[in-house]
Design a protein around this nucleic acid. Structure first.
Lengths: 234, 234
DNA sequence: TGTATACTGATTGTATACATTTCCAACCCC
DNA sequence: GGGGTTGGAAATGTATACAATCAGTATACA
């Protein structure tokens, strides 16, 4: 991959991290990356420091960089925090959104539905990222956006798994999420900030349901287990 | 200032920005700074990128770095956002604080009262910064802390002005703020998160009062103006 | 056999030379 | 005289050589 500009390199790395092509916790080697992007180590290090500042990676002295990790503890914190931040941002977005931003939001939602139809989990997650990032822009509040950006990193990485429906029931949940996006667009367009808050909270209730199904799946059929026990006993 | 380590350089620059020794919006020159800290441009640039990532400065391609600016618009956003973030963080801090963190908090508050007694506005603002940063650590929530850190940059820079009391009335407000700090420590120590929220909100009501006095000061005595008019008329 | 220590290869950190871009001012042309 | 152009100084961006640090291994010694 020769001669990408620094900005392209930055956004490519972000994409690879968000899509978990670069797994959480994995090591990043300056030299290898610099060769890969066709630049010397100096600008590559600069890119890495920016990623570190934005929370995509962590660095430690003389020990290089790692993709930011995601343990079970961060997931708990994540679901604790996300509803509040997203709801407040949606509320501000409904107040302050501009016309062009609204178009960008509709674009993102269009990409989202297209990706779900194609059953492309990665594209779905990235479109979802863009959708919520645009709402962040609308809110016009750098303090909250700092928090949102961190949340979106983990949001997108987590949701890779949930946008791969295993059955009709899970497929239904994704359709419901998409409907909520549409409703949110309408609320933001109409400057209805109270409604935007409500819809955001509903959106997160849904996410938590999906999440719980994943963490605590339907138990395996009992008779298979007992069958196995019986066979062992013979 | 020869041979400071990179970390020292980083925290020194943060301090100079927080204390407004480096004014908001002022230009930063790589070469000059590198000489000043006795290092070459390469590590200096690295420090600048970190500061940019943390929101202390802004950089633009081929155009160098500036200290993050503070206009009237950001102040509005600031007061809109700060109560919510600080209150939520205080609540989490009350739940999750550890013993050593509580000691650090008491230390910061000690420094705060000492600085107010000495009428040292800069030291007061920096001690206040540390006080709220420690509460952020206690909360153990990287998403909210991202937002808090941004808020604290502007909080500390703004408050330089308010910790310089012009009269007994304003002095009283600072004493009241200090009392609220003490109450907050007690609430956090006792794991009373609901109380911590309440105290945080009160703290911000006070700040807003102080702020309003600054933006909208007591009008000048009317008769002086009329006197001047009369004299002009003669 | 277990532990401490010295060596070695690999990786990160720094300095410096060089390339590129920007800014500003002098200049020319209309 | 005003506006656009062009030169050059000063700044930022990049590449590369070199220094410092770390991790892993082999070796010596108890």
């Amino acid at each position: 991959m020769p001669r990408l500009s620094k900005d392209q390199c930055l956004s490519d790395l972000k994409l690879r991290i968000l899509s978990t092509a670069l797994a959480p916790g994995s090591d990043l080697d300056e030299t290898t990356l610099a060769e890969h992007y066709g630049m010397s180590r100096t600008p590559m290090r600069e890119v890495l420091h920016r990623l570190a500042g934005a929370g995509f990676i962590t660095t430690s002295e003389n020990r290089g960089a790692k993709v930011a990790s995601m343990d079970i503890g961060t997931m708990r914190t994540f679901f604790q925090t996300a509803p509040m931040i997203y709801a407040n941002i949606a509320s501000l977005a409904a107040e302050a959104r501009t016309g062009p931003q609204l178009e960008a939001l509709k674009d993102a939602q269009h990409a989202f539905t297209k990706a779900t139809a194609a059953q492309d989990a990665q594209a779905t997650a990235l479109a979802n990222h863009r959708f919520h990032a645009v709402i962040g822009e609308m809110a016009h509040n750098p303090y909250l956006v700092a928090s949102l950006d961190r949340l979106l990193i983990d949001h997108t990485r987590l949701s890779q798994r949930f946008y791969r429906p295993a059955n009709a029931d899970e497929k239904m949940l994704i359709v419901k999420a998409s409907d909520q996006h549409d409703a949110l667009i309408t609320a933001i367009e109409a400057h209805e900030s109270a409604l935007a808050i409500d819809l955001s909270l509903q959106h997160w209730d849904l996410s938590r349901d999906r999440m719980e199904r994943y963490v605590r799946p339907d138990p395996l059929p009992v008779d298979v287990v007992s069958l196995k026990d019986r066979r062992n006993a013979v």
